[in-house]
Design a binder for these strands. Structure first.
Ligand SMILES: [Mn+2]
Ligand SMILES: [Mn+2]
Ligand SMILES: [Zn+2]
Ligand SMILES: [Zn+2]
Lengths: 137, 137
DNA sequence: TTCAAAATTGAAATCATTGTAAATAATAAA
DNA sequence: TTTATTATTTACAATGATTTCAATTTTGAA
């Protein structure tokens, strides 16, 4: 609790009760929660909570670089407190999202950490060659 | 045109004019169009076209295995005619989505095909160890 | 205590997607 | 050809996540 306060203050974020709870929720939940998940968890403690606050806060955290949106499935934006980019594994049955080892390179493995791999999805983001030529930065 | 007809018929899909146009659109567009993109392109030729038809058709094509939804950004479901799974590159400036070499493994490269890589996003999909134990299939 | 700025809230708006049922087109049977 | 059956397309309403916005509450400095 005090730890979270410090982390937020270091990033120039005022540690309101809502923000602390949301950060706590992101730390504890091992499964990369959606905005809805976060809302439902914290609503039990703060019944006046607004969904707008969740969206405002994850936007703020993202802008400050302490949170990263993870988009794996349609209509599902999940949030990841880990700052370093790392691979994910999403279960097609229960929907849970697991963290995988950073720098992991699976070639033809069919299994990892006990999870059965059925599909792989890789995307790189950046600036394409056309936009680089245009030098519009 | 005749080629498309054959492909559809081989998969047991009746080649209506809408379906042919949608398939054609998916083949030509090098940039993995969204449902909206497809609609706007074909609407010029078929002004009676319904958006529902686009959604029905991409669902049908997906079920028949000739199309794959690609989800890279929030609120953006794109469609990919390539059946084999392959990595993508999405430009943060213009939004274009490029195909990359299959089996490509970028370690610490900062550039590929002239594109500047700023971020990498990897996700594996399958059945997690918990769900495997439960044997609920 | 007072007041302005920051944070939170709820309601309405937006927008992609889905559901549904009627309309239309294609096909087969008579 | 005419009629009946089925497949396909369409329009429109419903859904659900996210955004916008104005009003209210909280905070913290003077
Ligand atoms: Mn993660
Ligand atoms: Mn592709
Ligand atoms: Zn699972
Ligand atoms: Zn570009």
């Amino acid at each position: 609790m005090e730890k979270i306060k410090k982390i937020l203050e270091e990033k120039g974020i005022k540690p309101s009760i809502q923000r602390i709870k949301i950060f706590e929720c992101l730390m504890c939940d091992g499964d990369h929660p959606t905005a809805k998940d976060i809302y439902e968890i914290i609503f039990k403690e703060i019944p006046t909570l607004s969904k707008t606050t969740i969206y405002n806060t994850v936007k703020l955290f993202t802008d400050k670089g302490i949170l990263k949106p993870v988009r794996i499935r349609e209509g599902e934006v999940r949030y990841d407190i880990e700052s370093d980019s790392h691979p994910h594994f999403r279960c097609n049955k229960c929907g849970k999202v697991f963290d995988l080892e950073k720098n992991l390179l699976i070639k033809e493995k069919k299994e990892i950490d006990g999870h059965l791999i059925e599909e792989k999805c890789v995307c790189y983001l950046g600036v394409c060659r056309n936009c680089r030529r245009k030098r519009e930065h």
